[in-house]
Design a protein around this nucleic acid. Structure first.
Lengths: 106, 106
DNA sequence: AGCGTAAGGTTTGCGCTACAAACCAGTTGG
DNA sequence: CCAACTGGTTTGTAGCGCAAACCTTACGCT
């Protein structure tokens, strides 16, 4: 059974909402570009999971990934696309709304 | 591979973070007690999903569910436990922290 | 009485996916 | 030459959230 008219404000963007990706996107929204290792450190994700989250976000067009070689070592950096920035900002706004909508006294 | 020392602040509480349950808990945190139908309306969840989310939250001890009969109809109400209140409040605090931690200019 | 439908939920089946672990390629150190 | 490290990617699987099916009781209708 599908709900007739669910409140659209509650439809959180699952792609963005996932804790790992929420962290990735939030980090990127402030520093515009970050390398793999840095992202791994700040998010606390394992390499494998970071890798797959990044791939998923890239597939969805929320960020771009650039792979280069710096001093013989591969070096991967990620940065938000315009869409990505919109999505993460919109997500935080929805969360705010969800919270304030139901907690009048704050 | 497990990360050696992941930042604990980023370990979001998945039980609470799930959109449906986040909505349920947030609603309950302000009105202290709500019946099934009301919760269904404000969260936009289907009966089935609301039912299973409530069961899961009850199992985890975040809320209590009371089933009674009101005018021959079953009537289910839910309200947060102390633990539940702590968990939802802590969760919003963590989200705040996640956001502000990485977006200095806000 | 008998039948359809609505209210108020619970149970079930399955497709997705996030995680850990395994893997891979290049590099550096001994 | 081999071991260990860096910098990732790929894979297997357990768990979970969703929609749909189901259940039970209560109300109309006729």
């Amino acid at each position: 059974m599908l709900n007739p008219d669910p409140d659209p404000d509650l439809n959180l963007d699952r792609l963005v909402h996932e804790p790992g990706r929420l962290a990735i996107l939030t980090v990127l929204s402030s520093i515009s570009s970050a390398d793999f290792t840095f992202l791994q450190q700040v998010t606390g994700l394992t390499k494998g999971n970071l890798s797959s989250h990044l791939a998923k976000l890239e597939d969805a067009g929320l960020l771009t990934i650039e792979k280069r070689f710096v001093r013989k070592k591969s070096h991967t950096t990620a940065s938000l696309t315009k869409v990505g920035r919109q999505r993460i900002e919109a997500h935080w706004r929805r969360l705010d709304k969800l919270r304030t909508q139901f907690t009048p006294g704050r």
